[in-house]
Simulated assay, not measured.
Amino acid sequence: MSTVRNTARADAPAETRPAAPGTLATITLVAGREISTRLRSRSFIISTAILMLVVLGSVVVGGLISQNAEAPKVAVVGSAAGVVAGTPGLTAIDAADRDAGERMLRASEVSAVVVSSGAGSDPVGVTVIGLDSAPREVINALSLRPTVEILEPASQDGALIYFVALGFGLVFLMSALTFGQTIALSVVEEKQTRIVEILMSTIPVRTLLAGKVIGNSIMAFGQIVAIGALAVIGMVATGQRVLLGSIGAPIVWFIVFFAIGFVLLAALFAASAALVSRAEDVGAVISPVTMLVMIPYFLVIFFNDNETVLTIMSYVPFSAPVGMPMRVFLGTAQWWEPLLSLAILVATTVIVLGFAARIYSNSLLRTGARVTLTEALKG
């Protein structure tokens, strides 16, 4: 009977194992895996393309509508009729006096009232009267800038406020839900297939969570930046530079607030999903986080001109990414308010990350019945 002899020397040096990667390298590895997975997802590419086309289409349509709008009607009083008559792009309607013209303006029969200013120093010789804002079309149609009076001052046009609010709310809702639900499904899939047991044998659980949150946050941030850049390019290409001047700063603040706010939401999505072991249960367990994403959207749509509601939204961490940019656009926020709101958001995100990491760590290896929030916090 033959035997196999071990020819290795007892005093031979043990095989040197490669050093384990550091925490930063591991987080980078997990984040890179999340990013590459999303980029290979056909559904992600299609949804992103559709969202960007909707944004670009709305900007282009808005520009075409503004260019093809009919000539604004203006009520003219006395000698002002001669100035308006020689101005292309305006339709003059005679008014008996200034009071009659203002009645027509309040009844929305005309866009503005043009009266003789009677001031020798006025280069145009007329005064343009608007209802709640300066009638830009009328002012731009005149060869020189006249004196402007506002009967009932308002910060922005009502239709423009609505569309800006719709844009911020819709982009926030779509991006947060898309990437948040992706994180949740990824966590449950790894837990259901027990891949997480293999991962946790080599990767600390908090490092795994950090990589998932950072990877998806980078993707969400990149999507928001691309949408913002596309909107700016669209406004420049369609000649809407005046609108760009008023909405440029709000877009920048929206990107900054979203970048931090999504980290908070991503941690909550991941922690919530770790409580269950089946993909069928994900919808129920992440529904509270989904509500936190949907509430700001509906608030900004229905209360986009309510200063009280917007002020509260701008200081609540979950709605600040929508509320504060809207107040910056409306010009109702002091210079220090976005900085204070951002500080509150950062502090809240740090606290939530701590709780989310604890829930995630205590629930990830527990299969079967749903883990309650109390059990997850206690460990």
Rank of each mutant, 00 (worst) to 15 (best):
I139K: 14
V242K: 13
I198L: 15
R241T: 15
F163P: 01
I255L: 14
A249Q: 11
A229T: 08
A229V: 09
M219Y: 12
E149Q: 14
L142Y: 04
Y162W: 10
M174I: 11
E152L: 12
P146M: 02
S201F: 02
E149A: 15
L151K: 03
V196K: 03
F168S: 01
G158C: 13
G169C: 00
V213G: 03
V225L: 13
M200A: 10
A210I: 10
L177W: 02
W253E: 03
L151F: 05
F163V: 06
V148M: 08
V148N: 09
L185V: 10
L185A: 06
G211C: 06
D157V: 07
L144W: 14
I224N: 08
A165E: 01
V232H: 05
L208C: 03
R194D: 01
L151M: 11
R206I: 10
T238I: 14
V196N: 01
I203C: 06
E190A: 11
E149T: 13
L209A: 05
I183V: 02
S155D: 15
V164H: 10
I150A: 07
S143H: 14
R206L: 13
N140W: 14
L208H: 13
L199I: 04
V205C: 04
V164R: 04
A226D: 08
I183W: 03
R145P: 10
V196E: 01
A226E: 05
G239Y: 09
I203R: 01
R206A: 10
G248A: 09
P146W: 06
Q223D: 01
V256Y: 11
G158P: 15
E137S: 14
V196P: 11
P146C: 03
A176L: 02
